[in-house]
Computed example of a mutant assay.
Amino acid sequence: MVDVHIDEKVLSDLREVMEDGYLQLLETFLEDSERRLSQLHEAKDADELGLAAHSFKGSSSNMGAVGLAELCRELEDRVRQQPLYGIEDLINRIDMEYIEVRRFYRDEWQRVATE
């Protein structure tokens, strides 16, 4: 189970650096994440799954979504091992973690937008 969903320090650094672009960054991350999640679910083989996990890991890490990045890293490692039995559980955990992350970033967007 993931203990930490978001690294608040990364987020505060991003907000400081991005200034007026911060809200757009949050929106872009959420839109991008939806696409990456679809790629995970639609992957036809281990290579596609590994690439999708790697991309999702990178963007999640950059945005401070440390729990999501860690699960994607686990998936990326796992797809290198054959056979891929049981991998659905890990993808389900990524789905569940993304729900938490999405809720957090939407709340963050609302909070910043109304300041």
Rank of each mutant, 00 (worst) to 15 (best):
A43L: 08
T114E: 05
L37G: 00
Y98E: 00
S33C: 11
L11M: 13
D95K: 07
E8C: 06
E16D: 12
P83S: 14
A52I: 07
E115Q: 15
D3P: 02
E16R: 09
Q81K: 07
N62E: 08
T114A: 15
M63A: 07
E16A: 14
A43K: 02
S12C: 09
L30S: 04
A65F: 00
R80C: 13
V17N: 13
L84Y: 09
M1R: 12
H5L: 09
L25G: 03
S38D: 15
N92P: 04
P83R: 13
V2N: 03
Y98L: 01
M96W: 10
F56D: 03
D20S: 14
D77Y: 13
T114V: 15
E97V: 04
D3T: 12
E100G: 03
S60N: 05
D89L: 13
Q24T: 12
Q39L: 11
Y22P: 02
Q39S: 14
E108W: 00
L84R: 09
Q82T: 09
Q24V: 09
T114W: 07
L26M: 03
T28V: 14
D45P: 04
L68G: 03
E27S: 15
T28S: 14
R103E: 13
L37Q: 05
Y22F: 12
W109E: 02
E31C: 03
D89G: 15
A65Q: 01
T28H: 06
D20E: 13
D13H: 11
Y105A: 02
M63K: 00
D107F: 14
L14M: 09
H54Y: 07
V2M: 10
R80T: 08
V17T: 12
Y22D: 03
R93C: 08
G67S: 07
D7H: 11
E100V: 05
G86L: 08
L40W: 02
L11V: 13
E108C: 02
V4M: 13
M1L: 14
A65V: 01
G64R: 01
T114I: 11
D45S: 07
I91A: 06
L40T: 01
E19R: 15
E19C: 07
E97D: 12
Y105I: 05
A43F: 07
S33L: 09
L37R: 03
N92C: 12
D89F: 13
L90K: 00
R15N: 06
D20K: 07
Q82N: 10
S12A: 10
M1V: 15
E70H: 12
D95V: 11
R103W: 06
A113V: 08
Q81E: 10
E100Q: 14
E97H: 03
I87L: 08
L14F: 06
E76I: 01
K57M: 07
E115W: 05
S61Y: 09
Q24P: 00
L37S: 06
R102K: 15
V4H: 11
H41F: 13
R15K: 12
L26P: 01
E31V: 08
E70T: 10
Y105M: 08
E100N: 11
D13F: 10
D47E: 15
I99D: 13
L37C: 11
S60I: 00
E74Y: 06
S12P: 03
G50P: 01
H54E: 12
S55M: 04
H5E: 11
I87T: 04
R111G: 05
R73I: 09
R78D: 03
I94M: 03
Q82E: 14
E34P: 05
V4F: 12
E27W: 08
E74N: 14
R102Y: 01
R35N: 12
I94K: 00
R78H: 11
